[in-house]
Design a protein around this nucleic acid. Structure first.
Lengths: 171, 171
DNA sequence: GATGGACCTTCTAGTTTTGACATGTCGGCA
DNA sequence: TGCCGACATGTCAAAACTAGAAGGTCCATC
């Protein structure tokens, strides 16, 4: 049920249309909770039906602007403080590691080296993103988004170092 | 399509029944690629239909033992060396971080403190698991599983430290 | 010999996610 | 004026995942 709360959370920040939300998903939540068009529009309809959001304005091109209701805000807060995050995480990158015995050691090392490189590239990308965002701490999303970004940075560095270490282990 | 390759990978190690596989999923792949009964049995049927595995023995209680075929082994290797791991990762834990501005600072700090504690508990669990596995490096799965375990350990430590740091940031 | 626990498979019904397709409007500028 | 790119919503089918019900067999031990 997290997509629902992702939409609710964005609307809590400011009223928006489905199209606006889509852009926000792609820009700020892309690394945390990606969503497609069909998901976003579908969820907006359900949230409105449940009274957690409502249409506040109809603009050109059929644009509908939604705003969160008090009920929606309460549900969002409840979800943040009361619901335990589910920490099950799937990783096909790690799944491959389990089966590295099926390919020859050279290929296994190449695989890990490649993962180290991808992680390094991700570190660079996030550092660049951090620079872009610097000074821009006007809204909550930016402030807390910065914490999430730091997580990504630490996570990518960890992965880079782990992959280098793991490559060493294969002899 | 990773479930398919998870099953293939386990069968590459040794022929097994669906029931056996289920236990292996729960024991060794639980933290990397969890799977349910219905998924495993369904995938076994599809893999057999596609000729990537075959029934090698029918035992008591309707038990069917499957073994990987040469075709299956080739497909597994191809997946390991040629297919790029998809690095999109969803995290409702981080999603909440984005919206921490919606609750009061005390609750936000409590949330992060809780995440630090959960991560610390995970570190302890994995360290215990590592001790249990020590010396047991007879098969490939154990050797490479150890690399995955190390990833989990580093990841949990990183999360513990990040959460402590993030809590500090909120004032 | 009964009985409970481990073994073993199949099926169904629901939700979530993905990706593609379909449709149309507005605003700026060549 | 005509056209393109950005704006904007909606629907559909398929794949993946979740959760559990239902049914049956073997075996050790009491």
């Amino acid at each position: 049920m997290s997509l629902r709360h992702a939409v609710l959370g964005l609307l809590a920040e400011s009223p928006s249309s489905g199209y606006d939300l889509l852009k926000m998903f792609d820009m700020s939540l892309a690394n945390v909770w990606p969503a497609t068009q069909s998901q976003v529009y579908g969820e907006l309809a359900k949230l409105a039906a449940d009274g957690l959001i409502q249409v506040t304005e109809e603009g050109p091109r059929g644009r509908k602007e939604y705003a969160i209701t008090e009920e929606g805000r309460a549900e969002l807060r409840r979800w943040i403080v009361e619901v335990e995050p589910n920490h099950v995480r799937r990783s096909d990158m790690l799944l491959r590691v389990f089966f590295l015995g099926q390919v020859d050691p050279g290929q296994a090392r190449a695989y890990l080296r490649r993962q180290a490189e991808l992680a390094a590239a991700e570190v660079a990308r996030l550092e660049e993103l951090a620079r872009t965002l610097e000074g821009n701490e006007d809204d909550d999303l930016a402030v807390y988004g910065r914490l999430a970004l730091e997580w990504g940075l630490r996570s990518s560095r960890m992965q880079r170092e782990w992959a280098a270490w793991a490559e060493e282990q294969i002899r």
